[in-house]
Computed example of a mutant assay.
Amino acid sequence: MTMIEIHADMREQRCGLVDLIKKRADVNVLDVALPIGDFSVGGGIIIERKTAKDFLGSIIDGRFHEQVLKMKLNYSKPVVILESDIYSTRSKFSLQALGGALAWMAAQGVNIIPAPGIEATAEIIYFMAKNAQVEMKDVPMRSKKPPVTEYNARFVLEGLPAVGPAQAQRLLEHFGSVQGVFTATAEELSMVSRIGKATAERMHQVISWKLG
């Protein structure tokens, strides 16, 4: 019997999902601290599981976009399992807002899989792992790093204080590269459109910070 290996983030232990997956005789579930996603099953697949309540909450607090972009940056096949019906909650979200969120995920190349409950989620994760590791003979738990692109460069810059997508784009256009931004002085950073002196100083402090 070929054993299937699934890496599960330790936070998933609380809901009982991991215990359901472990009932399979041909599965070895490793409880780890995944930096991205909830389950890594091989073949470049990373899975983020969201209940309807968590999905709506992640949109409100801003986690949603960041999680999706990190999955897309680090894995070739990001998947979001939406558990339970996002349209049947008592949320004040409009149909347009929910539809827009789903459409944005699809546009990012994220596979969206609906699941009526935790048992169905366990089955989906199991068969995704089996397909990746047995049927497709593809065992690696993490995909090869994607080629360096402008998207990657903007993603790095958005880690700086007060830098969002628009500011990252302006920084790249002004300095031409991430290296150019990182070697700039605070005064040079403040010359970029809509980057004030206080923000430039904070950015420079982060860039030049040293341990100890």
Rank of each mutant, 00 (worst) to 15 (best):
C15N: 08
L17E: 09
I4S: 03
V163F: 12
T183V: 14
V206W: 06
S91A: 10
R170L: 06
P147N: 04
A184G: 12
S208W: 01
R11S: 00
Q96K: 12
E150Y: 15
I21W: 07
A25M: 06
G42Q: 12
G16S: 06
R142Y: 11
T183G: 15
G100M: 02
L95I: 14
L56W: 10
K77I: 14
L102M: 08
T51S: 15
S88H: 09
Q67N: 02
E5M: 04
A132D: 05
M105C: 03
R90K: 08
A103K: 14
G180S: 08
M141R: 11
A162F: 14
A184E: 03
R202S: 14
I36A: 04
M3T: 07
V192W: 07
D138G: 14
S76Q: 08
Y75G: 11
S193R: 14
E158W: 00
I86S: 00
L98D: 02
L56P: 11
R202C: 04
K210T: 12
G42H: 03
S94Y: 09
Q167C: 02
S177I: 01
S40E: 07
I21V: 13
S58W: 06
L73T: 12
V156W: 08
K53E: 15
E188W: 08
I46M: 00
E5A: 11
M71L: 01
I112Q: 08
T2F: 00
P161C: 05
Q108V: 15
K53R: 03
Q133N: 09
G164N: 09
S40H: 09
M105A: 12
F127H: 10
E187F: 15
F155R: 06
L17I: 08
G44N: 10
N131S: 08
T51E: 13
R154M: 10
F127D: 08
K22C: 06
V41S: 10
T183E: 13
G57I: 10
Q169M: 13
Q67D: 04
G109H: 07
D85P: 01
P161D: 02
E135R: 07
D54V: 08
A33M: 11
G196D: 06
K22L: 01
A107D: 09
E158K: 07
L73H: 13
D85Y: 10
A186I: 01
